[in-house]
Design a protein around this nucleic acid. Structure first.
Length: 515
RNA sequence: GCGGGUGUAGCUCAAUGGUAGAGCGUCAGCCUUCCAAGCUGAAUGUCGACGGUUCGAGUCCGUUCACCCGCUCCA
């Protein structure tokens, strides 16, 4: 991969990124100004692909939800604000322990909380090296004392030692400070606020009191509306609340195209159930979600379900039945896997946090059980933009035998361009017949994607373009159409061509698209 | 954040410190009866950006931005 060559499975990110740009799927954001690290824009085909994937998720979650034991699972939708009262993020744990200034050691790569670092030096010596240790950590204190003695070439007594907090050091003093695990001085960075949430201000004055955050996940917008939904939509536990929307994280290292970007979209569903049933529902959703990804075209071979080890569980799922990731074999992780969707048992962490911080009663009264409780939550949280990337990776199929050298084999129901209608030559009444068919197909399938018409250039060139765009089928109007009312359809995947009556085209395409 | 690599047209790439080019693609016209055909023509570049050295910088130097790779990070 280092040289951009294709992987064992014949897929290279570099070629995919290039195709996405060339065909109008995805562009670097603010490209004419040099771009912006971690942000991407969607072009005409990309936005349609993303919309198709989001629509499918929404449909399969809220409109035609899956069943369990023959009964449809109840799921309703919400769309909450990107900016919420900042206290939401205090309750969720996103503000707090993780917003303290941190110090990095460039030598050892260790990271420390700045207010936990203490400096040692010889009293009265303002130019010699100073040694940093971690507060209340005997081991690092001893190491700092030892290094100081060695530097001074003698053993200093306790009364000869001066201490000060690391945060009070000037830049010059940091340059002579030796980190707790470091050998050389000057490897500690200045204390830096380390919070992955984007900040903004609500109101024009921009004072600290007006500070607010762009949401780092969509989930909390669901939890804080739990009471509203229960009160107004006649749902009963167990039920789910689904949401699709943007989220923002100031990632340290955006990487791998749209896999980890700073602005992204999530498709999250919080499923509320009794704690006794949580394990069963967790298993149910893991299975459902894996099947769903297969239904949008991902091959089972490229997916694994992986259970998190205890030590990698997030703060909200420390207690519970665990977290599973549905992982995809990305070109950049090949032959390994990387996260596509996480399905976590969050117990009742979030509701209890919001109950405590808001002082509002969030308990649900279960008539059947005659019991009042905070429901447990099973959260299937998928990245929409990651899903788009998975569809792109899965579809990307190099084929040297084709003029385009690559074909995008999108599952037809997800493909941004649904069909193309081409007059074989741009004369003899063929364009008119083609345009009439286009109008009809747009009327019927236009809400599912684009119907393409093009009369310019050779038919082979037009077919090749559609291969790269991932259009599943092309219909060609030729001389015979004028006499026998049939057209040729050309299949993207098999390259097979056959004739079909022109008035059968809409139904035939409907079958192919499942629409 | 650290280390390494790369930035020239939409893409792939040329261009001794001395007038910015090619192929493909795109667009227009002609031609064309099934897989990027042919002919004619056209558009497209602050050489990633800023600064410096120089009579003169795509080329040398510095800074910075973006992308790729390896670490780190991903609550």
């Amino acid at each position: 991969m280092a040289d951009g060559a294709s992987t064992a499975q014949g897929k290279s990110m570099e070629e995919l990124v290039s195709l996405c740009k060339r065909r109008g799927f995805i562009y670097p954001a603010s490209e004419i100004y040099g771009g912006l690290n971690g942000f991407w824009d969607y072009g005409p085909l990309g936005v349609q692909l993303k919309k198709n994937l989001a629509d499918r998720w929404w449909r399969d979650m809220t409109l035609t939800p899956p069943t369990r034991d023959g009964e449809a699972v109840k799921i309703v939708g919400v769309d909450s604000s990107i900016i919420q009262n900042p206290r939401v993020w205090e309750a969720s744990g996103h503000v707090g322990g993780f917003s303290d200034p941190m110090v990095d050691c460039t030598e050892t790569k260790f990271r420390y909380r700045a207010d936990h670092l203490i400096c040692l030096g010889e009293k009265g010596d303002t130019s010699g090296q100073i040694y940093v240790h971690v507060e209340d950590d005997d081991e690092s204190y001893a190491a700092a004392r030892k290094k100081l003695d060695k530097y001074k070439k003698r053993s200093l007594g306790d009364d000869e030692i001066d201490t000060c907090p690391f945060v009070s050091l000037s830049a010059e003093e940091r340059a002579i400070a030796v980190g707790p695990h470091a050998k050389a001085p000057g490897t500690l960075t200045e204390p830096r606020a380390f919070n992955l949430m984007f900040q903004t201000y609500v109101g024009a004055t921009a004072s600290e009191d007006d500070k607010a955050y762009l949401r780092p996940e969509t989930a909390q917008g669901i939890f804080i509306n739990f009471g509203n939904v229960v009160d107004t939509s006649r749902v009963r536990v167990p039920f789910g609340i689904a949401q699709i929307g943007k989220a923002f994280r100031n990632e340290v290292t955006p990487r791998n195209f749209i896999f980890r970007s700073r602005e992204f979209e999530q498709m999250e569903m919080e499923f509320f159930c009794h704690a006794d049933d949580a394990k069963q529902w967790l298993d149910y959703w893991v299975e459902q979600r894996k099947r769903w990804w297969m239904s949008v075209g991902l091959s089972e071979d490229n997916m694994i379900v992986r259970k998190h080890d205890d030590d990698e569980l997030a703060h909200y799922s420390k207690n519970g039945a665990g977290t599973y990731d549905i992982e995809y074999r990305w070109p950049f992780t090949h032959p390994g896997f990387g996260e596509l969707e996480g399905i976590a048992h969050r117990s009742n962490f979030d509701l209890s946090q919001h109950k405590e911080h808001s002082k509002k009663k969030l308990e649900y009264f279960d008539q059947e059980r005659n019991e009042r409780y905070l429901p447990d939550v099973i959260e299937p949280a998928a990245g929409l933009t990651r899903g788009v990337l998975a569809l792109l990776c899965e579809a990307f199929t190099p084929d040297d035998s084709r003029a385009s050298k690559v074909v995008m084999k999108f599952e037809p129901s997800l493909a941004p361009i649904k069909a193309a209608v081409y007059p074989l030559v741009n004369k003899d009444g063929m364009p008119e017949v083609a345009e009439k068919l286009v109008t009809e197909l747009r009327r019927r399938f236009g809400h599912t994607g684009l119907i393409e018409f093009d009369a310019k250039q050779s038919i082979g060139k037009r077919y090749a373009r559609m291969d790269e765009a991932g259009c599943p089928v092309c219909f060609t109007i030729d001389g015979d159409t004028m006499s026998d009312q049939t057209v040729t359809y050309r299949d993207r995947d098999t390259l097979a061509q056959d004739r079909i009556a022109i008035d059968q085209v809409p139904n035939w395409l409907g079958d192919k698209l499942g629409a």
